[in-house]
Nucleic acid binder design. Structure first.
Length: 707
DNA sequence: ACGGGTCGTACG
DNA sequence: TCGTACGAC
């Protein structure tokens, strides 16, 4: 009974969208096979896809082992913040796992179970963990994997590939059974559900690859597995990293499979193996069911395995979990997942954050400011890199904070997130982020006003800034690369041979493999840039006094960033004076946040009562912005202006923003040369207007919350 | 009140 | 839309 349901559904819905007329679809697939060379768009959701999930093995450890080859073969783990209990493990090598070392152990614990373990620290910059090396390493891998098929960067160390087309081509032209030499690596694949009747494992796999009477869909998977095996070897050769992979008909199964045989192996999921695979699979193993939803299934519906889910009708599941989740659950129980591989090689957002646990919690405004500034520096650096390498511009800046209150374990943690249009330049990002914090703080105080007054033991336990809504500038905007000196004479040949035409290629080539190339490039670039810059007299905000030494010190290894960082202000050099200002604040900022409120000090803080708040104004309130140079508080008790009340012009501008347009407020921050090109591509828009308001501390306490 | 720092998606 | 909740690595 169970199997009948199962068997009926699977073949018709390999692609995940439920196919009502199964037979129709099947026939179409076969017909299509006869004319498969025709350049026709594939029918939607009918033919079976070939999807691979590639997962780097203990990636951070591998990255560190490549940096420091003596670590190879030794039990190794990567930790961050070594000072407290040996740091927290965030990646554990396979040698160390044999000793029972696990992620989320402390360095000390790991040493106990594995005294020989080598603990490598995550790089630290600006007082926080800096994952740049890992991100870049991930990009190297993506640049290789994206050579075949549609590629989606799923995380820093995971990639999905849609190999349907390449596999079909191979099946048509060079099917495995005709192939003289097959990548040996492919025969090491694990094929789920393959019964080894007498013959050895590898022999069975060989037979499986060569079989001639197989289901077409299995043949496609075999082709996919061949391609993946080759790709994995290329990755190993070019990066020294090993990875594991799953090859299946959809993302869910591919992902499941990639984790089944690690490290450095690949697993194939033929259609015929799916039901048995899922039948006994604990639901928590499924992506998306590792948390509360999985718990609820277990606790409320007694569903322990994916197979158990089959008993429930779609209606029942929808009733319990909503339309979308219900259908999704019904589908995954049957191995159905129509999710597409997205074809995205670049992250959709950048973020920089830090937690301040326990005693480290931030209790002064100036310490909050200090950390916001640090985070913004990192964020800005990454935005500049993105602009430079990928010609992408981020449009939204968001600040998240979390607060904590010592005595009370109430939900005083919830600190509102706030966002606003993103203006390029370190100083501007810092300024805006700080204002966002103040906006959130004001709201937070309003909500918790009564309680805040009684207990003053609260503080900020987490801060993060992020940039999102990143869009590519129009292709053909080549001045960006020129502007940044990518074509410098001394090494132009090296770079141009790598030259970039698509956005993603740009990203990959510049962050990728040729570290020696980059190294070679970066030095002369500095000198070249200065010359170029002096020519471009009209460049906004160029700062000839950019503090180069300081920046270089901060990122000895960040070659590209070193170059750009020290160059131009719109990319955000930190002015010397500003740096000193901050140092000054660091030392003198002792006043507690609460004292600040209690003091009744007047400050240049925002938000007169008659001005609407973010919420009240809804989406349009995102036009929060700040007048250029008023403010930057000098002490823990003086705050900057935050003009939540934004004029309508600004709001309209923001509201009219479309994903393929460049926000003028962003545009105007760019160098004129780039502005011109971008403007030429789009119709001009209204310029943003900015209103400045000041008010006193009293306005923190809204009359409504004050009772 | 140590799994930290980032990502992405679904939802209201 | 923005802001939140959640899940994943």
């Amino acid at each position: 009974m169970f199997s009948s349901i199962f068997q009926n559904s699977i073949p018709n819905v390999v692609e995940g969208v439920v196919v009502v007329e199964g037979k129709e679809e099947e026939r179409r697939v076969e017909d299509w096979g006869e004319i498969e060379k025709m350049p026709v768009a594939r029918p939607e959701s009918s033919d079976s896809r070939v999807i691979a999930h590639i997962d780097m093995d203990c990636f951070y450890v591998q990255v560190e082992q490549r940096k420091q080859p003596t670590l190879r073969g030794h039990p190794t783990a990567v930790v961050q913040y070594n000072s407290w209990k040996g740091g927290g493990l965030i990646a554990v090598g396979y040698e160390a796992r044999k000793y029972g070392v696990k992620r989320s152990m402390r360095g000390d614990e790991a040493k106990k179970v594995c005294p020989d373990i080598q603990l490598v620290q995550v790089p630290v910059a600006r007082g926080k963990a800096d994952l740049t090396v890992y991100r870049d390493a991930g990009s190297e891998v993506v640049s290789i994997l994206s050579r075949k098929g549609r590629c989606e960067r799923a995380s820093i160390d995971e990639v999905y590939l849609d190999l349907t087309e390449v596999a079909e081509t191979m099946l048509a032209e060079n099917p495995p059974e005709r192939l003289e030499t097959i990548c040996e690596e492919a025969f090491k694949s694990h094929v789920l559900g393959l019964h080894l009747d007498g013959s050895s494992n590898q022999d069975s796999v060989k037979k499986w690859f060569y079989m001639s009477d197989a289901d077409r869909r299995d043949k496609l998977l075999a082709c996919g597995a061949l391609i993946v095996a080759e790709l994995r070897l290329e990755v190993l050769k070019e990066t020294e990293y090993t990875c594991s992979a799953g090859i299946a008909h959809n993302k869910m199964l591919a992902k499941l499979a990639s984790g089944m045989n690690k490290p450095a192996q690949q697993t194939i999921v033929p259609l015929s193996s799916v039901s048995t695979l899922l039948e006994s699979l604990p639901i928590k193993k499924m992506k998306q069911l590792g948390g509360k939803l999985g718990n609820s299934l277990q606790a409320d519906l007694c569903v322990d395995t994916v197979g158990d889910l089959l008993q429930f009708s779609e209606d029942k599941l929808q009733e319990r979990y909503g339309i979308n989740t219900g259908t999704w659950l019904w589908n995954i129980a049957r191995g159905i997942c129509g999710e597409e591989v997205e074809g995205r090689l670049l992250p959709k957002s950048h973020g920089s954050g830090k937690t301040f646990p326990g005693r480290q919690a931030l209790k002064t405004i100036s310490s909050v400011q200090k950390w916001i500034y640090e985070l913004c520096e990192e964020l800005s650096e990454r935005l500049v890199r993105d602009l430079e390498q990928n010609k992408r511009i981020a449009h939204t800046l968001t600040l998240h904070a979390s607060a904590h209150k010592l005595n009370d374990s109430e939900s005083l943690k919830k600190f509102p997130s706030k966002s606003c249009p993103l203006r390029y330049g370190i100083a501007k990002i810092q300024e805006d982020a700080l204002n966002l914090f103040h906006a959130g703080l004001r709201e937070y105080i309003g909500i918790h006003h009564a309680k805040m007054k009684q207990h003053n033991e609260w503080a900020i336990t987490g801060l993060s800034v992020s940039a999102s809504k990143i869009v590519a500038t129009p292709s053909g905007t080549h001045s960006i690369t020129k502007y940044f000196g990518n074509k410098n004479q001394t090494s132009s040949s090296a770079l141009e041979s790598n030259d970039i035409h698509t956005q993603d290629a740009a990203y990959l080539s510049s962050s990728g493999i040729g570290s020696s190339v980059e190294l070679h490039l970066s030095e002369p670039q500095i000198a070249n840039y200065e010359d170029e810059a002096s020519d471009k007299h009209d460049m906004p905000c160029f700062n000839p006094d950019g503090d180069e030494t300081e920046v270089c010190k901060a990122s000895e290894k960040g070659l590209a960033s070193k170059v750009t960082q020290s160059k131009m202000d719109f990319l955000g050099p930190v002015l010397k004076s500003e740096k000193q200002k901050r140092k000054f604040e660091k030392e003198k900022g002792n006043s507690s946040i609460l004292k600040y409120f209690a003091s009744g000090n007047s400050c240049s803080f925002p938000e007169p009562r008659h001005v609407k708040t973010f919420q009240e104004r809804g989406a349009s309130s995102s036009g929060m912005s700040v007048q250029g140079n008023q403010q930057q508080p000098m002490s823990g008790t003086t705050l900057s202006t935050c003009n939540l009340g934004q004029d309508d012009l600004r709001s309209d501008t923001w509201r009219s923003y479309k994903s393929d347009e460049i926000d003028p407020s962003v545009l105007k921050e760019l160098p004129p040369e780039i502005q011109a090109e971008v403007r030429a591509s789009f119709q001009p828009q209204k310029r943003a207007n900015i209103v400045k308001r000041g008010s006193s501390i009293d306005h923190y306490f809204s009359p409504t919350a004050n009772s």
